[in-house]
């Protein structure tokens, strides 16, 4: 059933994201063209300057729009599809409520990640390749060598762990939004406003928890100056525990509300 949910969730969201990605990349290309033409003094003419200016503005707007839309869709798909009128359909499907949450979470993570990748791609298109890419790759190689010096072969593991933890952080961030929306749903009035308030409350609680966690484990502060491979592994493990606990609590809280406290309008 999760696979079927994913199929429809991706369909419902792809129709919004894919065209936007396409337009963003196209405008990055157009701007690139203007910058090439620039060398042939096209921009000297008033017309050329204005056109290039407008095109750049559109690109920047699109770039901002992509991130805003990623966030809006992430919230909307949970708020509207599950807690709005569509919830009457979704919650009477023979599907466990945790699968609904997992479904939304996975698809949101996919779009946040791809929005990031597409944005990066558009920058690479926009900025002249020869300079930027070479420099970029050189920087990465340098950073890699530096790490290799410090940790040895373990650097690959650390790389993997970093990616893994990033996704875990992303997941816990999204789950915090879901939990806030679910808590806001418990209010009779001003549910969106209540959700926003709940987001701040959850954020504060998470920070308090982090402080308590950090205090109770003295090693925790070492995380910022990790010297050896072994130390790095301990740091990763401690961060992993923290994020997992936070994410699990948000997930279970959301699940509990959807299952036991649901009250669709």
């Amino acid at each position: 059933m999760l696979r079927k949910l994913l199929k429809y969730e991706i369909k419902a969201t792809a129709r919004l994201f894919l065209p936007l990605y396409l337009v963003l990349l196209v405008f990055a290309g157009i701007n690139r063209m203007f910058s090439i033409i620039h060398f042939e003094s096209f921009n000297d003419s008033a017309f050329g300057g204005i056109t290039a200016g407008i095109s750049m503005t559109v690109y920047i707007t699109l770039m901002a729009g992509t991130f805003v839309m990623t966030l809006v869709v992430l919230i909307q798909r949970f708020y509207k599809n599950l807690l709005g009128d569509e919830g009457y359909l979704m919650f009477t499907l023979p599907v466990h409520s945790w699968k609904h949450i997992l479904n939304k979470l996975i698809v949101s993570m996919i779009w946040v990640t791809s929005s990031g990748i597409v944005a990066l791609l558009s920058v690479l298109i926009l900025v002249p390749l020869d300079i930027s890419l070479k420099e970029f790759l050189r920087q990465i190689r340098l950073f890699g060598i530096q790490l290799m010096d410090q940790f040895g072969v373990g650097v690959y593991l650390i790389g993997l762990e970093t990616v893994f933890l990033s996704f875990l952080f992303l997941a816990s961030g999204i789950l915090m939004i879901y939990a806030a929306i679910a808590l806001g749903h418990l209010f009779n009035k001003h549910k969106l406003l209540a959700s926003f308030g709940m987001y701040i409350v959850l954020g504060t609680i998470s920070k308090i928890f982090l402080s308590v966690y950090a205090l109770s484990i003295g090693h925790f502060e070492n995380i910022e100056n990790v010297g050896t491979f072994f130390e790095s592994q301990i740091a990763f493990f401690l961060v992993f525990i923290y994020v997992t606990v936070i994410a699990a609590v948000y997930f279970l809280l959301t699940q509990y509300i959807l299952k036991k406290k649901l009250n669709l309008e």
Partner: peptide
Amino acid sequence: AYLPENTYLNDW
């Protein structure tokens, strides 16, 4: 099979 009072159909 449940028919609610609300229209639960999506718009896409």
